[in-house]
Computed example of a mutant assay.
Amino acid sequence: MMHNRNSLSPKTLAAAALVASLLAACGSSPPATFYTLASPADSAPAVRTASQGPQTFIEVMPVAVPDRLARPQLVVRSDATRLEVLEQDRWSSPFNNELRDALAAGVAARLGAIDVSRGGRPADQASYRINVELRDFDAARGGRVQAAFGWTITRSDDRRSGACRLTVVEPVSGGANADVVAATQKAVTQAAQAIADGVRALQTGQGGQCSS
């Protein structure tokens, strides 16, 4: 009796079926959803008037965040002891980069300033260097977002500086991940406003004063 060399054993067929099912499962995964912290209100360039005085330049440095947050995935609390890293729900860039860009845009919009973090400041103009640290962050669907910020602001010409801390609590309106993002955006907006107030304080000679 002749044997067909092309026939497959039951084990080989089972392995092939397993691989096919895994590939099908991968192919059916839902596409990732991407979010941004940028506020539409801060995206338009600020309109300056002559009464506002000289142009303001800011330098918003990279933002330090807890290690668990330095990733593109959203991180939310599921209960008192567990966190979820959401593979299908992501920031448009790693969270620390997203946070820096949102704060820079927010502060610039409130001051009518130009962010020169990546270059462009005239050599004869002072700038305000802003170093921000996100000291703590906790977010829960259907709960709240709590964010603790700390920052220093330093003038480049006379080295006067100010420092401040701010803890923001924003309710999360629903149980969707988009609701967590919206609450986080509101928290960042509050921080941008407080930082802008700190820059104004330095501009008027009130270095070291914290408005929060």
Rank of each mutant, 00 (worst) to 15 (best):
P94F: 08
A148G: 08
G106Y: 04
G120W: 01
E98L: 07
A139V: 08
F149V: 10
R129Q: 13
A139K: 05
E133W: 00
A104K: 11
I114V: 12
V107A: 11
R118L: 04
S92D: 15
L134D: 01
G142M: 10
G142P: 04
R129K: 14
F95W: 12
N96W: 00
A104C: 12
D89E: 15
G143I: 07
P122M: 06
R141G: 02
D138M: 05
A139T: 08
R141Q: 10
D115W: 00
A126L: 04
R144W: 01
R121N: 05
A105G: 11
R118M: 02
G143V: 11
S127I: 06
D138H: 01
P122Y: 01
E133C: 01
F149D: 03
E133K: 11
R129Y: 00
A147C: 07
A140Y: 02
A123G: 04
W91C: 15
V132H: 00
R135W: 04
D115T: 06
R110F: 00
D124C: 04
S117A: 14
A109R: 12
D138C: 02
Y128P: 08
R100V: 06
G119W: 04
A102Y: 00
A139E: 05
L103T: 10
D101M: 12
L99H: 02
D89C: 09
N97I: 14
G119C: 03
R90A: 13
A109H: 07
A102D: 06
E98S: 15
N131P: 02
L103C: 09
F95R: 01
G119K: 05
R144Q: 14
